[in-house]
């Protein structure tokens, strides 16, 4: 029972990948990629969790107080920023695909050039 929380990110990842594979719309696929990526946030935070510990901000607690692992939280922040920018870029590409090819269904986008 002490390891079950680690399985949640795996489940989120699989759900996201399933969404991408069965997607019929590129915007939907981009959102599914975000879901799959959020598995990494959950995994990082799960790894850093510690029972009876608080947030690693020492402005209002004693330095001796137990805190959760701050390193993985910092990595999660990096992860979120990079994820958001990738989403923006992919949505921009989707706009151009829609304009040039007239469709956002991945199944109808076969060849590279019309």
């Amino acid at each position: 029972m002490t390891h079950l929380p680690y399985l949640i990110p795996g489940w989120i990842l699989l759900v996201g990948v399933y969404g991408i594979v069965t997607s019929r719309n590129l915007v939907h696929a981009v959102v599914c990629l975000s879901v799959a990526q959020s598995a990494t946030y959950v995994l990082l935070l799960t790894v850093g969790y510690q029972k009876k510990a608080t947030a690693p901000v020492f402005s209002d607690i004693k330095p001796t107080r137990n805190v959760v692992d701050p390193l993985v939280q910092a990595m999660t922040l990096t992860d979120i920023v990079v994820g958001a920018t990738v989403t923006a870029l992919l949505l921009a590409l989707t706009v151009q695909v829609a304009k040039r090819r007239g469709t956002v269904d991945p199944d109808q986008l076969r060849s590279l050039e019309p």
Binding site: T2, H3, L4, G10, T46, Y49, Q50, D69
Partner: peptide, 15 residues
Amino acid sequence: AFRLPRFGGTFHPYG
């Protein structure tokens, strides 16, 4: 996942 340290444990060497 089942080989990771216990969830919520005190083993956080980097942190």
